[in-house]
Design a protein around this nucleic acid. Structure first.
Lengths: 110, 110
DNA sequence: AATTTATACATAATTAACTTATGCATAATC
DNA sequence: GATTATGCATAAGTTAATTATGTATAAATT
């Protein structure tokens, strides 16, 4: 995912927010979108992504729709209602994390 | 550590930066300082902290000095030269992480 | 034409950073 | 006298990742 361990725990947030912005996406598309948006900084590995998608689906945060394009399989994921709510929570947690870490690292600004 | 999984991977950064700011600290002091700086948001558990300190010491990033205060044991940790350099790296990684996540979450600002 | 790269999914074994639970010991507070 | 605070430690379990495979089709390169 990255040479930095800080991304550990961020994958669900990333997936949910991308689906929040793009309505429906398939796995491979997510990896490419992340790579593009981060200018190569962050590469989501398939071994992390697919299990994460399956889990989010099992938890009822995502719905799946299978499609066949150019004779190749695609699984489009989109947020459920619950998923949309959870996305809000995740984004709040990210903002809180950033505030907290900045308070720790730069306590003069606190 | 927190209800948010995002803190996973951040503990070393926190420890190193606190020691960067306070010269020498002991374990319990670190837990209290983190609690204070984050207004209770983040509580470092002992089960996470002590193994982390031992590992950083084993890696040569920290030096230890044992002291006895009020008949109680304290282990003061301080950064080695290598530890100081690694702190710079960790802080850069944190800044990079924050930039990257903001690019993902708020791509309009990118 | 043959090989490599890109697209697209998946899982299994391993690693690592935590959590949770427990343990020991002294000092201070209620 | 019992609880809370101070101060260290480790062991078992969880979980999110990495690393390594595996399958299959389409496109690009040599």
């Amino acid at each position: 995912m990255s040479n930095s361990k800080l991304y550990k725990g961020s994958l669900n947030t990333i997936i949910l927010q991308l689906l929040n912005q793009h309505d429906k996406m398939y796995g491979y598309e997510i990896t490419q979108k992340v790579k593009a948006l981060t200018k190569g900084e962050l590469n989501i590995t398939e071994g992390a992504l697919y299990p994460a998608l399956h889990k989010l689906e099992a938890e009822g945060l995502l719905d799946v729709e299978v499609a066949k394009v150019d004779n190749r399989l695609r699984k489009y994921y989109k947020l459920t209602e619950t998923g949309t709510k959870e996305t809000v929570n995740k984004l709040e947690e990210l903002a809180e994390y950033i505030r907290t870490m900045q308070a720790l690292v730069n306590p003069k600004l606190a």
